[in-house]
Design a protein around this nucleic acid. Structure first.
Length: 552
RNA sequence: UGGGUAGUAGCCAAGUCGGUAAGGCACGGGACUUUGACUCCCGGAUGCGUAGGUUCGAGUCCUGCCUACCCAGCCA
């Protein structure tokens, strides 16, 4: 795996280095353990990059493991999309596993716990268990079923498995300490009854292990050395260690927690993302405004840019929110070297070059990227009528505006100098056409040095222009600017997408979905895979170009 | 008010045995420019949540305090 940005030091990497040095491990094994209940997003990418690259750096391995212990929430449809996203990001896992592959083993370990007097079947209802649990400041009370005999527990647990009880009638609980200040240790439920068909094991099971019980066993079975998860599991670590120890797992994995990714103007929770999809606020999981991997891909982000971003933001334990401009920086950085640079006008206004012959067409040979000649050239037609960018003309410009305005001369990129002489308006006073003259002496490439112009603008020959729909995006979610806290549904940006109709140069006529271009002076654009047809080009603006020009 | 974790520039973040504050993003200034892009220079903490203490020397060690986040699913 190439790495254009080297990973910076972080505390997890330091732990790995230390463990290798001390001989605690000869080889490290990490894992990425998604629950197949939704699409992967940029936050998952942080974890993926961390796990895969850490293992890669130290010649270790990384497993992909689907944590499918709750059949009521999971769906096999997500399994393939998750695999696709990981591969697209550029990673290939060593082992591919499913938590459900270990159900028998987990069951046996639970039986072991019972035999050791460390687990018991509890008949309390969910509400009662909650009551008995106590609160953050008040210790819990022991369940009246806590002291059932081992024999009875064994019998009951077996009958739970056989399906003799209904959902919620009984649970298996670890017997730890109801007065622990850590609520997770107050006899946590480790198995529940759910007569639900599982995506992979079908109706074989009606008891399913809880995360806290299942996860450490999965890690131990696979020989995971460093089980990296997010901060909210910090309180669970004592339980994680308890399970590994009491279940007498031969391999002892270590759980390490880091802060999940937060991004400005972005909502990352699966629940909210799902709501956006379900309520039709967006076009689906792959809407180009979504922070999902699928959304970023459709928007036009590259795997390299996402990887570089993930490497650069670092890994730490402090809760933080990364500026989304950081992400934008890394796409620009990556695309800058990869994309052909072409001319596209997103808000066209027509200009007529009055002294240019009616039927003349000049074919200009233009490099796709002046810095990278190997990218080749194409021919760009030039003629009497052109479209330029609406914002490249102002009738009454402010100071320091050096684009087109009455009496001013600018360069048409790769073509001639033109001078604006006349402005045509409609009955409402709106400018509908700009009339200019050109100077034949100033043709690009002729070495004309007679005079200079301050501005260079892009254009497309009207007669040859290829119409295209451009979708301009802004953040889907707006951060509350220190007002009172709003629900995220109230933070939806009504202007998150603007659809405009523009023109691109003819060389793009046959552009294919996912082809990426820099529209010079405008931004980076990706051909949309969903709405582009043979007759219609649809571009997603990936990100605009930076601009230090301030109108004012 | 129980437990857990964290506080280094506007935003991320490094900082190994205490030795005199990396890097990136953003921002500002300048150079260059047929993209107001890119690139290239220059600019930032006498300061590391805060108050004390130990020390020749503290972001690093000690004590107190403040603030923020997480935890009471038969979710993960």
């Amino acid at each position: 795996m190439e790495s254009s940005t080297s990973s910076t030091s972080n505390f997890i990497r330091n732990i790995v280095i230390e463990d290798l040095k001390s001989g605690k491990h000869k080889e490290i094994i990490t894992r990425f353990p998604p629950e197949p209940n939704g699409c992967l997003h940029i936050g998952h990418a942080k974890s993926i990059v961390l796990n895969f690259e850490l293992a890669d750096e130290f010649n270790g391995k990384t497993n992909l493991r689907f944590d499918d212990t709750n059949p009521t929430k999971e769906d096999t449809e997500y399994v393939e999309s998750i695999k696709e996203d990981i591969r697209w990001l550029g990673y290939e896992w060593d082992g591919l596993h499913f938590a459900s592959d270990y159900f028998e083993e987990m069951y046996n370990r639970a039986v072991l716990l019972i035999k050791k007097g460390k687990a018991f079947v509890c008949d309390l209802s969910a509400d009662e268990i909650k009551e008995y649990r106590g609160t953050l400041t008040v210790p819990g009370k022991e369940s009246p079923y806590r002291n059932r005999s081992i024999e009875e527990n064994l019998d009951l647990f077996e009958r739970m498995r056989k399906g003799e009880f209904g959902d919620g009638e009984k649970v298996l609980r670890a017997k730890i300490d109801m007065s622990s200040p850590n609520i997770n240790m107050r006899d946590p439920v480790i198995y529940r009854i759910s007569h639900t068909k599982h995506q992979r094991t079908g109706n074989k099971w009606c008891v399913y292990p809880m995360y806290d019980f299942a996860h450490p066993i999965e890690d131990a079975i696979e020989g995971i050395t460093h089980s990296i998860c997010t901060l909210e599991f910090e309180d669970h670590r004592p339980l994680y260690d308890w399970v590994v120890r009491e279940c007498e797992m031969e391999h002892i994995p270590q759980q390490i927690e880091f802060a999940r990714l937060n991004l400005t103007n972005t909502i990352m929770s699966k629940r909210f993302l799902k709501q956006l999809v379900d309520e039709g606020v967006v076009d689906g999981w792959d809407d180009p405004r979504m922070p999902t991997i699928a959304g970023l891909r459709r928007r036009g982000y590259t795997p390299e840019s996402i990887r570089n971003f993930c490497r650069e933001i670092g890994v730490a334990k402090a809760t933080s929110t990364v500026d989304s401009q950081m992400l934008e920086h890394f796409v620009r950085d990556d695309l800058s070297a990869k994309c052909p640079r072409v001319m596209g006008v997103i808000r066209p206004i027509k200009i007529v070059i009055t002294n240019y012959p009616e039927d003349k067409v000049e074919m200009l040979e233009v490099n796709y990227n002046p810095n990278i000649p190997e990218m080749g050239k194409r021919l760009v037609p030039f003629s009497r009528e052109l479209y330029i960018e609406e914002e490249d003309f102002m009738e009454n410009p402010p100071k320091k505006y050096f684009r087109l305005f009455p009496g001013n001369e600018v360069r048409l990129m790769e073509a001639y100098f033109i001078k604006c002489n006349e402005v045509i308006k409609d009955e409402n006073g709106k400018v509908i056409e700009i009339r200019c003259t050109y100077d034949p002496e100033t043709k690009s490439g002729t070495g004309f040095t007679g005079r200079k112009v301050k501005g260079t603008i892009h254009w497309v020959s009207a007669k040859h222009a290829v119409p295209a729909e451009m979708r301009l995006y802004e953040p889907l979610i707006l951060d509350e600017n220190d007002g009172e806290e709003k629900s995220f549904m109230d933070r939806i940006n009504p202007n998150s997408m603007k659809i405009v109709n523009g023109f691109v140069e003819p060389a793009l006529k046959d552009a294919k979905p996912q082809d990426k271009f820099q529209f010079m002076r405008v931004g980076y654009f990706n051909v949309d895979i969903k709405y582009t047809t043979n007759d219609k080009l649809v571009f997603n603006r990936i990100v605009s170009l930076k601009s230090s020009f301030k109108m004012k």
